[in-house]
Design a protein around this nucleic acid. Structure first.
Lengths: 108, 108
DNA sequence: AATATTAATCGTAATATTGCAATATCACTT
DNA sequence: AAGTGATATTGCAATATTACGATTAATATT
């Protein structure tokens, strides 16, 4: 097969999986870290910092964008990325909630 | 290609990616939730509760086990799974730290 | 207008993941 | 020893992911 049977899981389970899957590649971890550390971070800056080809970085960026975690600002010919803090908080809360519930349930 | 160039990333980035990738499938989210909620949860119980075939559940279990998140107890012919709390805490701290740093950095 | 810069998209190859049927293994029961 | 139950492994098909060269599109610069 190769596809995921998403329909047999509930919305929350799929959301948790979507967010963690998005983070689940070291290039995307690195991209998120770089963007949060550097204002005015564009695609080229990430290509140089990380060492993957430009199309590869662009592809990873679009995976992250699909979840809504990134904002874009055009300045001249540059496209600067920044973190969408609302989405970051949503993502963080969802995942943290998963950990808290797992921990509380498993030790009672 | 298809493979990940792990060597160009640091240990922490790979660790974060490994843990989040392990959680990044709704079946594995569901498996972890079930195990934490039910003491004496074995493979068959998961198969019935989730609705995927036994080999599929077994495969997802082994993905989770690879990260050390599960403990096993043999009782008769049953193999009961439970959450390794130390590993859960390690995983939670690592991911939370990633979120905290991202948040602190991006809004200063 | 021609050129350079920036980033997305296309096309493709290699590899990984997801899912299941069939089978194997291993422990317990009879 | 044969049978049963529980789980792991094997083998395979379908799909997804990762990576990059080539190309495209869009904007800036000269």
């Amino acid at each position: 097969m190769g596809f995921t049977k998403k329909h047999i899981f509930n919305t929350q389970q799929n959301q948790i999986a979507n967010f963690t899957k998005m983070i689940g590649h070291p290039a995307r971890v690195s991209i998120i870290q770089h963007i949060s550390l550097n204002k005015n971070c564009n695609c080229n800056a990430l290509v140089e910092a990380i060492g993957l080809a430009q199309p590869t970085i662009s592809q990873h960026l679009s995976e992250i964008k699909k979840t809504g975690l990134l904002k874009q600002t055009v300045k001249g010919k540059n496209l600067f990325y920044s973190i969408n803090q609302n989405k970051l908080n949503e993502c963080r809360r969802l995942i943290n909630d998963f950990f808290v519930k797992t921990q509380v349930n498993c030790c009672k």
